[in-house]
């Protein structure tokens, strides 16, 4: 168990480092999948198989797939990688990395400073989780349902291609970029917008 934990931990950290250093988005996403899988292994080693399964299904499955969809839709390929290479100069990442390292050191010091007694880990079986989830946390589950619903509706609404109702604050920049509102007949523009932009 312990060995499993250490191995999967090393894999998780290493793949995460790869995620944040890749230039090509698809490479990064593949390393992210590896990272999620190894975190799932950590869950398994902690004796939480249900969570491990969910980790693999939702994170490594659904979320990664979503990302890949987006990458495909936006056609983020070699040019993006080239751009990332230009953007990731040392002067960009050195200072944030130092700050985060300080934070990391401080948190680890805090972690190991207060109590020295051994933290034993025992298995919590899915049955207890299910009872707790649908017992005392039932309202939170309902709320999570609302959240997911809102997420779906929001994503559907935002992701819809409706160039006509560009927010009026954004329209100036849009005109500056020279992007034409081809789908908008002038008579459909509301009075308010007309007044504002005249």
């Amino acid at each position: 168990m312990s060995t499993l934990f250490y191995i999967s931990s090393i894999v998780a950290v290493a793949s995460t480092v790869m995620v944040i250093t890749r230039y090509h988005p698809v490479h990064a996403l593949l390393y992210l999948a590896v990272s999620f899988l190894s975190v799932g292994m950590i869950f398994l080693s902690l004796g939480a198989p249900f969570v491990a399964a969910l980790e693999i299904i939702v994170y490594a499955g659904a979320i990664i797939v979503l990302f890949i969809f987006v990458v495909m839709m936006l056609n983020l390929g070699r040019e993006t990688a080239q751009q990332e290479k230009e953007w990731l100069q040392p002067k960009v990442w050195v200072v944030p990395s130092i700050l985060v390292l300080i934070l990391l050191v401080e948190m680890i010091i805090l972690l190991f400073s207060d109590n020295k007694d051994i933290m034993r880990i025992s298995v919590v079986d899915p049955r207890k989780v299910a009872l707790s989830l649908y017992g005392e946390y039932i309202i939170a589950v309902e709320l999570t349902g609302f959240l997911l619903m809102a997420g779906i509706v929001g994503a559907a609404h935002i992701g819809k291609h409706k160039r006509s109702s560009l927010h009026r604050f954004l329209q100036n920049g849009e005109n500056g970029n020279g992007k034409a509102h081809t789908g908008v007949p002038p008579e459909q523009v509301s009075n308010e917008q007309t007044v504002l932009h005249d």
Binding site: P96, L99, V100, I102, L103, E106, M107, L110
Partner: peptide
């Protein structure tokens, strides 16, 4: 970075 600085300060 601002948020990070705040966290760093508190910790």
């Amino acid at each position: 970075v601002g948020v990070l600085a705040g966290i760093l300060f508190i910790i």
